[in-house]
Amino acid sequence: MTGWITGIGWVNGDGCGHGRAAQAAPCWTATVSVPTRRQVFAKADLRFGRLDDFSRVGLAAIACCLRDAGLEQWQHKRAIGIVAATRKGCLTTDLAYLDTLLASGGALASPNLFAYTLPNCFLGEAALRFGLVGNSLIINQSPRNDLEVLRYALQELSWSCGQQGVLAGFCDVPPPDEKERAGALFVMIEATADTGTAPYGRLDLQGDRLVFNGRAMPDVDALVAACFGTMS
């Protein structure tokens, strides 16, 4: 199974970034800088301000990734899927919604917050903004194996009927008192190399091994670093 990485985008503690505009691969801490609309989209986007933090971070990372891949602009819907891994999902949104529920005995439960208590909602936000009609789903992220989402995405791409590409990555906005990695990162994996943007390189799934440009990758950070290495 083979795909071509054509874009990398992320949101971390330093804000938003994408591969071809960055000097170095992103670093991860337990805090994330939740982006404003202006930091992500040049044009007005009324919905962005209503999104929960989890959705803003995930959507911004996808937007940055598509920008890096030259796929941000579109006229016709595209067969691009999204597979996102998460450890905590939209827990912070769940808690915020629960607080509106418990404070009022249910009478003033927030419909706007409830609408974002499914972790896949930001995938829908990305799909409608960028015309992405492929499969879109969340999988659980195991701290021991952060490459699983890339395996899943490559299989999805290989097994699907004529899919152009799959966005694959992770999104986590843990509660403030937790010390786990916070932020989101997505890579764009396209089915062919002859896209408008020169790919970072070739990603193969050989058994369970993920191989980028001939080198086995131990984790996502190594993969991103290897992508940056192709630009130097």
Binding site: A115, C121, L123, G124, L128, L132, N135
Partner: peptide, 9 residues
């Protein structure tokens, strides 16, 4: 099969 509407959340 699986597909997104790309229409509304």
């Amino acid at each position: 099969g699986a597909a997104n509407d790309a229409h509304h959340v």
